[in-house]
Structure formats: structure tokens, C-alpha cells
Write a protein that binds this DNA or RNA. Structure first.
Lengths: 344, 344
DNA sequence: AAAAGGAATGGTAGCGCTATCATGACAGCG
DNA sequence: CGCTGTCATGATAGCGCTACCATTCCTTTT
């Protein structure tokens, strides 16, 4: 009877957005049938389904995902937390994740910790509040509060980048082994005075792990393993500057093992500008396998890490888990490849 | 009386997560007061506030943002839609956005269209369903459905990357002018046989706009403006390969104006490998001002576009608008800078 | 023919939070 | 002393959707 809402005691609808009930009414079915037509199409008759879809089209209905998530306590959101977007490595992992997750209808909620574990905790708290269906985070290190919070969370957690025993799922590579690999290569090439150069190893602790591997190999041969730690972020510029610094501190240096390709390429290009011969005067090695390294002359010796692949695999495994399938392995090693160029 | 829920007719709580009501009970206040203590701290007495915060701490309460958003039809989510993550340009804009938005407590919902406007429409639909408080999208071109959908949406919309009359807010630069700028520089340097090389200009239509500017300048001088369009994405590799192609198609070429620095740097490095002198045999220019261009020899002539700055400014203007302040200008030109290196 | 099973649909009651209005307490005012 | 205004708090009623159970109608089984 009271069609018009003049008395409308407690009207609260702010936006005049179309609701599922209106769609249902237009389609001549109950709201719950309309809901099913959209979310479980196989559970309604074809006639109901088509009339609902028509009504959706006609009214321009946009499902309120917030309401849906609250009612079902599920969502198609996946939280992705990385320490930095400046470092292209993480971006490439995100790329791989994004590609795979979006294809399955998931949306990415992106967070950046700036290498701050407390910040990470705050982000995790916020993201859990969105009842994400999973969380992907870069690295195995978290602060205590974060650890407890996540332990009590009953959704999949995927830790990427480095290999190890995580909280739940893990896709990554063994950075210590990568460091050993490159150090071994340098020694095999006959170099004995080898410096490792990294940038902010306390933040980029994976580069620190590579140094650990590097050091072990050298020490096993009775060789010193000097470390030069830069206080800037890794970049071509920083690499160029570090070259000078290394040669001043350790004039006998024959080879430099850089923590990443940006540094290494920066140093290589700087060496050329200074008329130094690579690898004759100084050998240079990097890590990551960025395209840039293949385009400089001589080509950069580096370790190729499958970053996008890591993202894709992580996403795939996560989806597997989310769709209720059995997970046989929680740890996945994506490996790495030594790429020998002319720079060593 | 009935404290235990044995008969529990229609219990539906799936997760045993702490709710605000439990916090309120522990703090000895009503749920609404607890809500206020957390969201409008100045609207409750200090005693209430502290006891609520204590209870939150003690119980490890994590606010359910989904429920909050539904009730208030507001959220701290901001949708960000870009055409690609492979192109670092967009990533840098995201970086700028992210930095500024996260500092203000906003979360980013990230979408990638893969240069497909229909995909963009789908993403927009989905994101509107999350009742985002704003939407940021790269570019001014959208399909019709998307346009209508967004016109009826009553939240701020920010279109970035290129300058022009958008739907709402806009931060970007004039790509036609940038193309003109570089073409003028090349002509001033005395080059007359100039080829423009771009990759998939129908997708990267902003590179196409730069070509338009380039062409106009050349034609005004009565010079031909040949275009070589590559079918791959812009990359060092593609740039290296295109060099050959250009020299075969247009043997007289004196200068190549590349659509971006990746292509240009790839070509420059390839030229060096082939023993060609840059700029003596062939001059090379790019666009973007990537760090790489400053580290090759000779330095790459390019146009510096303030990408992170664009993201930061866009985020700032958006926040301004979201906090209800007056917006005086809807369009913001971030400009560009010609960087002359030794390559032209 | 009666019982049992299945498919399509709907009614009801929340999900956890906040907007709205109502209340009571107390200060300031003429 | 009543009147108005401000402040802190609370009761109530949703936000738009879906889980859960119930109902109906039809097909299959013994």
C-alpha cells in the first residue's frame, strides 16, 4: 500500500544505486534467486537466469561487492605486500601475480612496506579487515605481532622471493646458494681479489644472504671476502660511484660481485667511460638477469632469477589452494641460472 | 540468561573473530561508543576512549572494514587502473600515487587492462562494487559503457598521463607538444632525414600523439616524416632490432626519434656493437628520461617526463578533493624537459 | 500407489558495522 | 526556576547481500 516513502521514518540509502532487489523485482523473481542467477548460474532455471541477466543489463546494475563479502565473509580480494616499488624485482613479481590472479577474477590490494616491518604489520591488519581471501607477502621475515596475527588467520598465506620454511605456502629461490654459485664462478675464472658490493643489506637482506654464500665459498678457499656496503639504494648511479670507492679501498681488486644488475651495469658503464677494460682491468658480475645486462658490451655475467615466473607460480599455487585442492608441496624452488657474459 | 548458544537456531558466524561488540562489552560501553572511540576519537570522553583502546589491544581486535564500508557506504579504497605493468612508466606513476595515498591511509586496488578498453570497463565495474572513494585511471580514452558508468558515479575520477579535457580531474603532460619539441631539436641540429620509431602505436597511443607532433614540425619544413611501427612491445631488444630495419628501409636516415628510451637505448647500444658512430653515423633520441639514458655513452638525448611527480600530484589533488576542499583547477600540466645528450 | 529423492524457488535472519534520532546530564542565561 | 544549548552516550534500524532452512512440484524407485 504505502508505496511512496513520504513518512519514510529512517531512510538511509545515500546513493540511488540499483540494488539486487530491484533487479529481482524487474525480473519477476525473488532477490535470492537473482543472487543465485549471478553467482551460481547452474542453480537456477534457464528462464530465471536470462530474465535476471536482462534486468541487470537494462538497469545497469553493479553488484555491491562489499555487501556480498559481508554476507558471505568471502571476497575475491588478495592482499599483496611488497617492501618497495622502486626495486623493479618486486614489480616483476607483482606483474606475474597480477596476470594470473586477475585472469581468475581476483583483485589485488597493493601495499608497500618501505622495508619497515612495523609498517608491514599495519598493512596486514588493514588488509585482514577487508577479509581478503589470501595474503601474499615478500619475504619470510615479519615482526612478532604480525606473526601472531597471521598464525591465527585461517586463510592461505604465500611468502615469495626467498626459499625457506614459511608460515604456510612459499615460492622462492635460495639466495645463499645463488651467492655461492657466483662466487664459485669467479674463483673458477681465476680471480682471487674479489669484493662484494651491496646496497643497504639490512633492508635488502636477501642480498645479504647472497653475500653469506659468497663469503663461505671464498673463505673455504682461504680467501678474504671484503664487503662494501653502500648507503643508497641500488641504482646505475650508485654502481658507478661504488666503482671508484672499491678501487680506492681495495686497489688490488680483480673482480666485483655486485648485489644486483643495476649496480653492476652502472659500474660497467662507468668503467668504460673511465677507459678501464672489463674484464681485463676489472671483472664485474651482477644478479637478477635484467635485460640491460645483455645489451651492454661486454655482456654482464649475472644470475638470472625467474621473477615473473615466481609471481605466476605463486599465484597458481594460491589459486589451487583457494579452490580447495590438495596442496602437496608447500615449498617451491624456482631456481636460478648462471649467465656467463664477457664481463668476468 | 541464555548465555550458551546451544540451541543457536541460526548461528552464522563462521570465523571466530573478535567483533566490535565484544570490544565494547570488555570496555564496558555500548558498541556505538566503541565505534566512535575508534573512528571519531574526539566525540567520546577520554575515559571511554582509553578503555576501548585497551580492550582492542587486549582482545587483538581487527576492525572489519567490509562491514564498516557497507554501513557507511564509504571506504578508504582507491582504484588504480593502468594499461600495463610491463611498461615501467606506469609503475613509476603508481609508485608516486602509492606513496602519497598510503600516507593518508588509503589502500590501492590495482587493475591492469592490458591496453584493452573492454577489460577496463570490467575492472571499473568491479571496483565500483567495492565502493571505492575514487578512481584513478591512465589515459583519457574509455569505451562508451565505461564512460556512461563513470559519468553516473558520484566520486572523484582522476585521469593521468596525458593532458586534456577529462571526465573530472586530470594530471598529465602534452604528448603532442613533446613530439614537437624533440622534432624541433633534431631539425635545429641539422638533421633532415629523420625516422620516427614506435611500438604498437594503437595501444600506446600517447606515443602516437608524440608522432603527430613530430610529423607536424617536419611537414611544416617540407620534410617527409616516415614512421616505422614495430609489432613488439618497447624493449631494448626491440630497439636493437629496429635499427637494422630502419637502415634497410631508409638508408639515408640521419636521425631516429624513438617513442621511448628503452627502444632508443637498445638501438644506441646495438649501434655501438656494430661499430656505428653515434651521432656521427646515426643520431638517436628517446623519450622518458630513464636513468639508463644518462649512463650510456654518448648520453641519450631524451625528454624527461616527471612520472613519479605525476603520480604524487594526482594523489595530492585527489586527496584535496576527497577531503572536501575546493578544487580550483581540474587540469594540471606537469610538463616535460628536453634533455640534450651527446646522441644527437 | 506410496514413499523417497531431487530441482527450483522463496522466507527469514543475519554478516558487523554506523547513521540517525533520542535521552539524560549539566552548564549558562535572563 | 524554567529554558535552551552542548556534550556524552545509547537504542534502534538498517547498509545490500547471502547462508540456511522450508516449501513446492515433479520425477524416480520399490
Amino acid at each position: 500500500m504505502s508505496r511512496d516513502s513520504t513518512q519514510a521514518s529512517k531512510q538511509r540509502r545515500r546513493s540511488d544505486q540499483i540494488t539486487l532487489s530491484q533487479v529481482a523485482q524487474a525480473a519477476g523473481v525473488s532477490p535470492i534467486t537473482a543472487s543465485r542467477a549471478l553467482n551460481h548460474p547452474d542453480k537456477v532455471s534457464e528462464s530465471a537466469r536470462t530474465s535476471v541477466l536482462e534486468a541487470v543489463e537494462q538497469l545497469g546494475y553493479v553488484p555491491n561487492l562489499v555487501a556480498g563479502s559481508l554476507a558471505s565473509s568471502r571476497s575475491k580480494l588478495i592482499a599483496v605486500i611488497v617492501p618497495s616499488l622502486i626495486n623493479t624485482v618486486f614489480v616483476e613479481v607483482i606483474k606475474g601475480l597480477q596476470e594470473t590472479l586477475e585472469a581468475e577474477g581476483y583483485q589485488i590490494l597493493l601495499g608497500n612496506t618501505d622495508y619497515d616491518l612495523d609498517r608491514e604489520y599495519q598493512l596486514v591488519r588493514t588488509f585482514l579487515g577487508w577479509s581478503c581471501s589470501a595474503l601474499i607477502t615478500a619475504g619470510l621475515r615479519h615482526n612478532h605481532a604480525c606473526q601472531t596475527l597471521l598464525n591465527n588467520w585461517d586463510h592461505p598465506i604465500m611468502e615469495v622471493m626467498e626459499l625457506g620454511k614459511g608460515m604456510d605456502l612459499n615460492v622462492g629461490l635460495d639466495h645463499v646458494a645463488a651467492g655461492r654459485c657466483m662466487a664459485t664462478h669467479l674463483i673458477d675464472q681465476g680471480y682471487r681479489h674479489i669484493v662484494y658490493v651491496g646496497a643497504r643489506l639490512s633492508q635488502d637482506y636477501r642480498a645479504g644472504m647472497r653475500y653469506e654464500g659468497h663469503k663461505k665459498v671464498l673463505q673455504a678457499k682461504g680467501i678474504e671476502a671484503p664487503l662494501v656496503e653502500l648507503d643508497t639504494l641500488g641504482s646505475l648511479q650508485a654502481g658507478a660511484e661504488s666503482l671508484q670507492q672499491v678501487l680506492t679501498l681495495y686497489p688490488q681488486t680483480q673482480a666485483i660481485h655486485f648485489a644486483n644488475d643495476d649496480l653492476a651495469a652502472g659500474a660497467l658503464l662507468a668503467a668504460q667511460r673511465q677507459g678501464l677494460n672489463v674484464p681485463g682491468d676489472i671483472a664485474i658480475a651482477g644478479f637478477n638477469g635484467l635485460p640491460l645486462g645483455q645489451h651492454v658490451t661486454p655482456q654482464l655475467t649475472t644470475i638470472l632469477s625467474p621473477r615473473e615466473e615466481m609471481g605466476r607460480l605463486a599465484a597458481k599455487e594460491l589459486i589451487r589452494r583457494l579452490s580447495g585442492k590438495n596442496v602437496y608441496r608447500r615449498q617451491h624452488d624456482v631456481g636460478f641460472t648462471l649467465q656467463v657474459g664477457g664481463s668476468t
